[in-house]
């Protein structure tokens, strides 16, 4: 185990959505390599609070990589330099002594800054609400084993369903496009037999909402896939495109 480190943080500070933000430099001293990135920020915040200053605000909750609350654009990359993890799973041993670390919020007009590094991702919820569901009421559903689903299909649907809605795909995309996020949900349900009745309706509704939220267009750079903490594949995007064109240009109904 290597010794403790000293880091220089350049952190985006912004009082609220209306105000102008700026970078402020902080020293993070005696950082243990065993700390998570967020714990390092906790320690910096403790120091700020002791001085009576406002701590750095950032979203976080489960701190085990599943809730999708944590974000942070660290040294130019969403969730920092490592592949397939969220910021809360990033440990300080991934950094070097005396390193300068630039920390920014997700940048997208559909993700306005709330304060400092915390952004408003409710646009994601609105997209989900537009069609990310199967219309079944509680009760009155068939027995769970009445529809066999091939294991490969179930596994593929599961892979799409692992999206945690963190927004790293949008943050990584040079166009701030939400295609990976939207397509993951569309795919999950397009793959499963349960999702078929509303398959084409769903994709149209979700894409329309995605566009209304002001996300950019996909230019197939693949940055989303590379930065997704759950390693969701852009095959989902192709599947969504196919379904969308099918729905709008070929299918007769709806």
């Amino acid at each position: 185990m290597s010794g403790n480190m000293n880091l220089t943080l350049k952190v985006w500070r912004q009082k609220n959505a209306e105000s102008q933000g700026k970078f402020v430099t902080y020293k993070a001293e005696q950082v243990s390599p065993d700390m998570s990135f967020l714990e390092m920020l906790d320690v910096v915040n403790e120091g700020l609070i002791k001085k009576g200053e406002d701590p750095i605000h950032f979203d976080h909750d489960c701190r085990e990589g599943i809730c999708g609350a944590c974000s942070l654009h660290i040294n130019g990359r969403p969730h920092g330099p490592k592949h397939g993890i969220t910021t809360c799973q990033l440990h300080m041993r991934s950094f070097n002594d005396n390193e300068i670390v630039v920390i920014e919020p997700w940048r997208a007009s559909a993700f306005p800054v709330i304060r400092d590094l915390a952004v408003d991702r409710t646009s994601f919820d609105r997209i989900q609400a537009a069609g990310g569901f199967i219309s079944v009421n509680t009760g009155g559903v068939p027995d769970a084993n009445s529809i066999p689903i091939p294991k490969v299909v179930a596994d593929e649907a599961f892979n799409s369903a692992t999206c945690i809605g963190c927004g790293a795909c949008v943050a990584a995309c040079k166009n701030a496009s939400a295609m990976l996020f939207v397509s993951a949900k569309v795919s999950q349900m397009a793959l499963l037999p349960q999702g078929q009745p509303e398959r084409y309706r769903r994709v149209q509704a979700m894409v329309a909402q995605m566009d209304a939220e002001g996300f950019g267009s996909c230019t197939n750079t693949g940055a989303c896939e590379a930065e997704c903490p759950k390693e969701i594949s852009i095959t989902n995007i192709a599947r969504m495109n196919r379904d969308y064109f099918n729905a709008t240009l070929i299918k007769n109904e709806e």
Binding site: I134, V136, V141, A144, P148, A154, D155, F158, M189, G195
Partner: peptide, 21 residues
């Protein structure tokens, strides 16, 4: 009933090769 409900919602539970849960 919970399992039935979740499967109907599209929850991708683990399955056997035969397609059953």
């Amino acid at each position: 009933n919970i399992i039935d409900q979740c499967v109907a919602q599209g929850v991708p539970f683990a399955r056997e090769y035969g397609g059953l849960l």
